[in-house]
Simulated scan of single mutants.
Amino acid sequence: MLRLLKRNRRTTSEYIFDNINILLMIFICFITLYPIWYVIVNSLNEGMDAMKGGIYWWPREFTLDNYKAVLSNEGILTSFGVTVAKTIIGTISHVFFTAMVAYALSRKDLRGRNIYMFVGIVTMFFSGGLIPYFLLLRDIGLLNNFLVYIIPALFNFFHLIIFVSFFRELPTSLEEAAKIDGASDLKIFFKVVIPLSMPVIATIALFQGVYQWNDYFAGVIFVNDADLQPIQTYLYKVVAESSSNQMMVNAPSGVAAKSLTSQSLKLATMVITTLPIVLVYPFLQKYFVKGMLIGSVKG
């Protein structure tokens, strides 16, 4: 018993080390979360009063006028709908298309499999550049088209590698039994492989869903139609002050326009555009870690 107590008793150096780690983690959490809290607090404060500064922890003059002005703008509601649509459609199509390609490349009897993998790896490090990419999308008619968010994002080679690593670990006896029963490769993929691959599918869906939600670049470069631009592109315009002044002019009745500033509207727009993914991400973060480990260790 005495030996056990001695083993469980921490030394002074271990105690100091643990407390330093705790303090360090608290500090890292603070510097990570405080900027988000600062944006939220100032977005809930009256705009003219916020320009005086000195607001760090709580709103000095609480108001929801900033959010009323932002949400009353039809542009942000339309952009929000575009973002939701492209996130759902883009994620589902990306997962199934990449999974089908990965399933084919995971088969050892596929001719030229090593060549395809080599070419895919090269594309991870080298690209043709933005101008050839723009010209390509223009020639196939994707400019100012909702499909510009979907078709170019159907495939990602890094996600394919994760899929391939997972598919290679599936028991081959299951596929052999399905083939004996007369199942085709397509039926095996949907009836056998997909049900067994839900962990990796959830991982890739989360990767792609976060990307689709946060992507603003496609809307800036390839879409000029305001009705087809996602909410992150709308946020980009607000930050660039091309839309915030218009929201101040078109403030709804009941909102004191004098209390609105371009800065307060920017902060409120930032909160609205980022809040959904910020709320969802912590609950799904474990899938990111699991996705990075899939296929790395064989049982």
Rank of each mutant, 00 (worst) to 15 (best):
L77M: 10
F166G: 05
P171L: 01
R10V: 13
S184E: 05
I28M: 09
Y216S: 10
A205Q: 04
V210H: 05
G141T: 03
R7C: 13
M270D: 04
M1Y: 00
Q212N: 14
N214C: 12
A251H: 13
L33N: 01
A69F: 02
G128T: 04
P195Q: 11
I55M: 00
P230W: 06
I76H: 06
T83R: 03
K6Q: 12
D181R: 05
K68S: 09
I221Q: 03
N8Q: 15
E175A: 08
D18A: 05
Y133E: 12
I55F: 02
Y234A: 02
G120S: 06
K6G: 00
R168K: 14
Y34W: 02
G254K: 11
F167A: 03
L186Y: 12
K286T: 13
A178S: 15
V41Y: 07
I162A: 11
K108Y: 15
P199V: 13
A257K: 12
H94F: 04
A268I: 05
F167D: 00
L275M: 05
S244T: 12
V278L: 15
K68F: 06
Y34D: 05
Y38A: 07
S253C: 13
I22H: 06
I22L: 05
L5D: 14
T78V: 14
V82W: 03
G75R: 06
A257L: 04
P199H: 09
V200I: 08
V39Y: 01
I140H: 07
L136P: 07
I231L: 09
R107L: 01
I277L: 10
S253V: 15
F126Y: 15
E74H: 14
P195C: 12
S43K: 06
V70M: 08
T273H: 07
S296H: 13
A85N: 02
L143Y: 00
I88W: 03
A256M: 06
A69V: 00
M100N: 11
G120F: 00
L293Q: 15
G209E: 01
Y116M: 14
V82P: 02
L23I: 15
P276R: 01
I22Y: 08
I115R: 04
E46F: 02
K6T: 11
Y149I: 09
V39E: 03
F146I: 15
D109G: 07
S259E: 14
N19S: 06
Y149N: 08
H94T: 10
H159C: 05
K6A: 14
F167N: 01
N19A: 07
F217M: 14
L33R: 11
A85S: 04
N224A: 06
N224R: 10
E169S: 09
M51W: 11
Y116D: 08
I20F: 09
L71I: 01
M25F: 13
